[in-house]
Simulated scan of single mutants.
Amino acid sequence: MRKRLLHGLVSVFLLSVVVACSSDAYPALMPEKNGEYSLLWVRDRNEGVTPFPPIFNEVNKVTMPSSLEETNKNYPELKLEKVPAFVIFDNRGVVFKTYDQDEAINFLEDILNDSK
């Protein structure tokens, strides 16, 4: 009986460690406070100047790495497949991921307007 209980407690502990570490994989990309959002915007540098959507100024942090390859090397758990890529975080982790700028803009408008 004690062996089963110990095994169960160890399993729960290991599962909680895995879950806790999953959002710690990219703390530099996440906002610090509850209710804040940040954006990872991976774009094709060969396309030239890309206009910066005004709604992107309303998040707490925008990270724009130099390439998809760099991003996947630094943050492989995000599993980004192509550019442009938009990943939105809250203080607990990823809340939205898309490859469509309009979808990212609409999502940000919805969550930022809801929080006002």
Rank of each mutant, 00 (worst) to 15 (best):
M1V: 09
R2V: 10
R4G: 10
L6Y: 09
G8Q: 13
L9W: 07
S11I: 09
F13W: 12
L15A: 11
S16L: 11
V17E: 06
V19L: 14
S22G: 07
S23D: 07
S23A: 09
D24A: 15
A25H: 09
Y26S: 10
Y26T: 07
L29Q: 07
L29V: 04
P31N: 10
N34E: 15
G35I: 02
Y37T: 05
V42I: 06
G48Y: 06
V49F: 14
P51K: 02
P51H: 05
P53R: 02
P53A: 02
I55L: 01
N57S: 13
E58N: 10
E58K: 12
V59T: 06
V59Y: 01
K61R: 12
T63A: 04
T71K: 04
P76Y: 04
E77L: 11
L78N: 00
L78H: 00
L78I: 00
V83F: 04
A85Q: 01
F86C: 00
F86I: 00
V87P: 01
D90T: 03
R92G: 09
Y99A: 07
D100M: 09
E103Q: 14
E103I: 07
I105N: 03
N106S: 13
I111Q: 01
L112P: 01
N113S: 11
N113I: 03
D114R: 13
S115V: 05
K116Y: 11
